Computed example of a mutant assay.
Amino acid sequence: MTAVYGEDSGLVAVAIDWMDGPLVRLRDVELIARVPSEVRSDIHDLARREGASVRVNWSGDPEIAAWGVSMGAGQEMGLSPEGYAQRRDTVITYALLVGPEPAEDPYGSELVIRWRDVREEEPNLGAWPVKAEQDRPHWDWTPLKGIGPLRFGMNPQRVAAALDEVPAARHGRYPFGQSREGFGAWMLHDDRFDAVGVTAHYSCGFGTPPTLGAVTVHGRIGPQIDFDGIRLIGMTVSAVDAALIKHLEEREIGLIIGCGGDLGPDGLNVYVRATRAGDAVVSEARFCKAEWEDHG
């Protein structure tokens, strides 16, 4: 669990982890490490009995200001038969529990933002539709060079033109450590394209214009990509992991594990990731140029 403190060092919030945190009960409702849809149903039942109002928070999960509770979910992990950590195909619940001051908008509270800032996260309305395989276009992938119509090194204007779409969201920052001359030029980090189902990640720096360095293909709606006959997008994560490991072992190719437990073949700078789809997860992938250092 994580304790969040205010200006006077008083406790204002506690975040309970989904894998390692203690079990927490609200009245007769167990909140932690459960199937999200079951917890949501139990919370709504309790709220009706007590006359409390339930809303949907940034992640699409229940939030109840009267109780200071904001729910969430993270991917469940387990152990392989050999005793190694492995990703499961499910998510389980966690909770942010707050005091009266941030209860009206827990993740919008400055005190909570200092711990976890979700303002640039893609908001969810509580639904996780997954596009059917037959409705996804298939893109080619040239390792370390590009994917679909995108080539690493493109500027943002060429990326948008190649996708024929205006970004739904842009993320970036002003550089740190500037002199008294000012903040410097804003640096673009990511463009999210919701119609196509990809996010473009840019390399940039002081005085260096942004160029395409990586592309994340979204698991729920993005185009399909194959790696030696293994479909990487919108699939059961454990099945992709197993197929990838078997394929690499048979060819004596090394396996790379990313920051978030993401798997990829050595030397290709691609990582199979997981994204939430309700109570489950589906696979997505990030494809990078050779010089890109992925940090999850």
Rank of each mutant, 00 (worst) to 15 (best):
G177F: 12
F193Q: 07
C204M: 10
A195E: 12
D190K: 14
A195Y: 10
P209Q: 08
G213K: 03
L212S: 12
P210V: 05
D194S: 09
G197W: 04
E165R: 06
A168L: 01
G205L: 02
H189G: 03
R173L: 08
T208R: 14
F176M: 06
W186D: 07
G177I: 10
A168P: 01
G207M: 05
L163K: 01
G182W: 03
F193T: 09
F206K: 05
A214T: 12
D191T: 14
L188G: 11
R170H: 02
A169K: 06
A169M: 07
A214F: 12
F183Y: 14
G213Y: 04
Q178A: 13
V166I: 09
Q178G: 15
G197R: 06
H171G: 01
L188M: 14
P209A: 09
F183D: 14
P209S: 10
A195W: 06
G184W: 01
Y174V: 10
P175S: 05
D191S: 15
H201V: 10
A200F: 03
A168C: 03
R192N: 02
F206R: 08
F193M: 07
D190V: 12
F206I: 07
T199P: 05
Y202M: 06
H189F: 06
R192D: 04
F176E: 09
L188I: 12
M187V: 13
G184P: 11
S179W: 11
G182R: 03
Y202Q: 02
D190L: 09
F176W: 05
V196S: 10
Q178P: 12
R192L: 04
E165V: 04
G205A: 01
F183E: 14
G205H: 02
R170F: 00
G213R: 02
H201F: 11
A169D: 06
R170W: 00
H171W: 02
H189E: 10
W186P: 06
Y174S: 09
S203M: 07
L163I: 01
C204A: 15
F193E: 08
P167D: 00
G207N: 14
H171E: 06
S203R: 10
G207P: 14
S179I: 05
A195L: 10
R192A: 04
W186N: 07
L163A: 01
Y202C: 01
M187Y: 01
A168N: 05
A168T: 08
T199G: 11
L188N: 12
R180W: 12
D164R: 15
R180T: 13
P175E: 02
G205S: 02
Y174R: 07
L212E: 07
L163N: 01
S203W: 04
A214Q: 12
D194K: 06
P210T: 07
F183P: 15
T199S: 15
A195R: 13
P167Y: 00
S203T: 06
Y174W: 13
P167N: 00
V198D: 00
R173Y: 13
F193K: 07
F176S: 10
Y174C: 08
A200N: 09
D164N: 15
V198N: 00
T199K: 15
